[in-house]
Amino acid sequence: MALAAARLRAAGLRVTVQRMAVLAAVSEAAGHLDADALRERARRVTGGLSLQATYNVLRALTEAGLVRCTHIPGQPARYEIEHHDNHHHFVCLHCAAIRDVECTVGAAPCLEPRLPAEYDVQEAAVTFWGVCPDCRAGAG
């Protein structure tokens, strides 16, 4: 929790038990968890935390650049620690597992769109869709 408190202070956020608990839950998560799963983990520390409070904390953490929110069509928003690496995602069409994929080409924003020079592209979000190895093994 001390690390979470230090990260909150460094980002200029007020340190609260709820923010520390949610940030620690995101940090300790293996994968991309939705708000409800993060709330359940954070409640182990806070004792009580509403889903709305969890969303409020996640919004503040995302706006502060500590957490990255990923929107996959047909799924709830997923959260992970922000590493500022502009990585992409692979989503399994069978089990909906999400896996990080390194930048597809070069440095951020990884892709070069054909836009007029006045546009300042800062990030590219690419989602690859397919079948993960576990689901492929189960189908064979």
Rank of each mutant, 00 (worst) to 15 (best):
A4D: 00
R7E: 12
L8N: 02
A10Y: 03
A10R: 14
G12C: 01
R14P: 09
R14M: 04
R14G: 03
T16R: 01
V17A: 06
V17K: 06
Q18W: 01
R19C: 01
M20R: 11
V22F: 08
L23S: 02
L23H: 03
A24I: 02
V26P: 03
E28H: 11
A29Q: 09
G31S: 09
H32C: 03
L33S: 07
L38F: 05
L38M: 14
L38T: 02
R39S: 00
E40F: 09
A42F: 07
R44Y: 07
R44K: 14
V45S: 15
V45K: 10
G47S: 11
G47A: 05
G47I: 08
L49C: 09
S50Q: 05
L51N: 08
L51H: 12
T54E: 08
Y55M: 07
Y55H: 15
N56I: 02
N56C: 06
N56M: 08
N56D: 14
A60D: 04
E63A: 14
G65S: 06
G65E: 04
V67H: 00
C69D: 06
C69V: 06
H71M: 05
Q75G: 05
A77I: 04
R78E: 07
I81G: 07
D85P: 02
H88A: 10
F90K: 03
V91W: 01
C92Y: 01
C92H: 04
A97T: 11
I98L: 13
R99A: 12
D100Q: 03
D100Y: 01
D100E: 08
V101Q: 09
V101D: 00
C103R: 15
G106R: 13
G106H: 12
P109S: 14
P109R: 07
C110M: 13
C110E: 08
L111H: 15
E112T: 15
R114F: 10
L115V: 15
L115Q: 14
P116R: 15
V121T: 10
Q122P: 04
Q122M: 12
E123Y: 05
E123P: 00
A124Q: 08
A125Y: 10
T127W: 02
T127C: 06
F128Q: 10
G130A: 10
V131M: 10
C135L: 00
C135S: 03
A137V: 14
G138L: 11
A139Y: 06
A139C: 08
G140T: 11
G140V: 13
